[in-house]
Simulated assay, not measured.
Amino acid sequence: MNAYHLITFVAIGFIIYAIDKRKEYFPVPIILLTLGIALSFIPFYAEAELTKKIIFEWFLPAILFVSAYQFPLKDFKKYFGVFTALATVGMLLTAFLLAGAMAATIGIALSIGFIGTLLIASILTPTDPVSVVNILKKSTDKAQLADIVEGESMFNDGTSVVLFTVVAGIYTNEQNFAILTFFKEFALVAFGGLAIGLVIGYTVSKIIHVTHHEEYQVMVSVVMAYGAFLVAEHFGVSGVLATVAAGLLFSYEIQDLENEEKYRNYLDGFWEVVNPVLLSILFIVMGIEAMDLLKWNHLWAIGVLFLLTLVVRFLVLYGVFQAIPKWRHEFSLKNINLMTWAGIKGTMSIALLLGFKDQYSGEAELIFSLTIGVIILSLVVQSLIIYPLTKWQQHH
């Protein structure tokens, strides 16, 4: 991908996000994806692609840091138990149930082994609230639901990348799956990432008490976001969880500043420019890549897999909330239904898929095709349904 590609993608992103500011519920990811598909028919843009190194070392740290840093700390404290449960037990249950359901249905017809279905499930497990949080907040009187969906996504991104890393390692090395070894490696990568993120977050965030210049605060946040990620990845643990932990700790430290609101406004001014730029490039490139990855003879399997993702997510959410008496009364079937449809596959799934495609040189066309197809279906169908669904549930 060259400079001309980047300038075009950023310009397109600017136009679409500018329209989004004027139109409520404008489906930004869908439009960017569609434009990417259109650009794939132009030879000059068809050659644009992102490598795993660029995605993981340049895109993810910034996207993750923004989510963590801007997440309201009061909601983090209030729903910490919910986030933790959904991002650990809930995420693992979702991945293994989806993999099992896949193996028992389309896996038999298409000859996909369990590790292959688990790899697909690990890519499809992360959720992306970018296109639905604002809709939930504006179309329903339960703002807490949007906060929970957003917080779940932030933590889920971290743990699902750990799951993907472990499963992808098994798949590419063709190792046997051992459940005990899997959980040991999962725990090491997850807790190692959190530990490094907390240490770097605490150490670097102390610098904000030394300097009182807004531009230096931005520099500190950039060092923290990318430093936590790169150091964690260097030691073989989760850079995603390290960045999330550092971002939350940085937000906590800013509370002690005398001019907290002033600093937050300055930081937001920087990161809220960076974030849509990166998201625009990711969604457009996914549209370009989609035409190469998607195989039309797999459409029936993509449809079945998409339905399975919804059913499994509903069952896991229902099971987790029913298991805790306090949550049982707080989360009704209507809330669980909304959370199910709000679990859109987006940014992280795209990053994992494109990263795996760049890294893996084996024959995995079937995995690429099924995964990209479900991501596209999820973005289109769920983004368009969530608004009328919230309105319908309010009147029934």
Score class of each variant (00 low, 15 high):
residue 55 I to F: 10
residue 55 I to A: 05
residue 47 E to G: 11
residue 55 I to H: 06
residue 51 T to F: 09
residue 42 I to H: 10
residue 42 I to V: 13
residue 44 F to P: 03
residue 65 F to L: 09
residue 43 P to T: 01
residue 54 I to V: 13
residue 72 P to A: 08
residue 57 E to I: 06
residue 42 I to S: 13
residue 67 S to Y: 06
residue 49 E to P: 02
residue 44 F to D: 10
residue 52 K to R: 10
residue 42 I to G: 06
residue 59 F to C: 15
residue 49 E to A: 09
residue 55 I to Q: 06
residue 58 W to Y: 14
residue 49 E to V: 04
residue 73 L to N: 10
residue 53 K to H: 14
residue 55 I to R: 03
residue 56 F to R: 08
residue 57 E to W: 14
residue 71 F to V: 02
residue 56 F to P: 01
residue 74 K to G: 05
residue 58 W to D: 04
residue 68 A to W: 12
residue 66 V to A: 13
residue 47 E to S: 10
residue 45 Y to Q: 09
residue 71 F to Q: 02
residue 67 S to C: 08
residue 74 K to M: 11
residue 56 F to Y: 15
residue 63 I to N: 04
residue 51 T to G: 10
residue 57 E to T: 14
residue 53 K to S: 03
residue 48 A to P: 14
residue 64 L to N: 00
residue 43 P to M: 08
residue 71 F to P: 07
residue 67 S to T: 05
residue 44 F to C: 05
residue 50 L to M: 08
residue 70 Q to I: 04
residue 50 L to H: 07
residue 65 F to T: 09
residue 68 A to M: 05
residue 71 F to S: 00
residue 67 S to F: 01
residue 65 F to P: 07
residue 49 E to N: 14
residue 61 P to V: 09
residue 69 Y to V: 06
residue 48 A to E: 06
residue 69 Y to R: 04
residue 51 T to W: 07
residue 58 W to T: 06
residue 43 P to S: 07
residue 55 I to M: 13
residue 60 L to W: 08
residue 53 K to A: 04
residue 52 K to D: 07
residue 60 L to Q: 08
residue 73 L to S: 03
residue 73 L to F: 11
residue 48 A to I: 14
residue 57 E to C: 01
residue 72 P to D: 07
residue 59 F to K: 04
residue 46 A to T: 02
residue 47 E to A: 11
residue 44 F to Q: 12
residue 62 A to S: 12
residue 44 F to V: 10
residue 51 T to K: 10
residue 59 F to L: 15
residue 59 F to V: 12
residue 46 A to R: 15
residue 61 P to K: 14
residue 43 P to Y: 02
residue 50 L to C: 09
residue 67 S to K: 03
residue 56 F to W: 14
residue 58 W to H: 09
residue 54 I to N: 02
residue 42 I to P: 04
residue 48 A to T: 11
residue 62 A to Q: 09
residue 45 Y to N: 04
residue 69 Y to Q: 06
residue 46 A to I: 03
residue 68 A to K: 03
residue 59 F to I: 15
residue 73 L to V: 01
residue 42 I to M: 14
residue 45 Y to T: 02
residue 66 V to N: 02
residue 62 A to H: 03
residue 63 I to R: 01
residue 64 L to A: 05
residue 52 K to I: 00
residue 62 A to Y: 00
residue 45 Y to W: 15
residue 42 I to R: 10
residue 64 L to H: 00
residue 56 F to H: 07
residue 59 F to R: 05
residue 73 L to D: 03
residue 44 F to S: 09
residue 57 E to L: 15
residue 50 L to Q: 02
residue 67 S to W: 01
residue 45 Y to C: 02
residue 44 F to K: 12
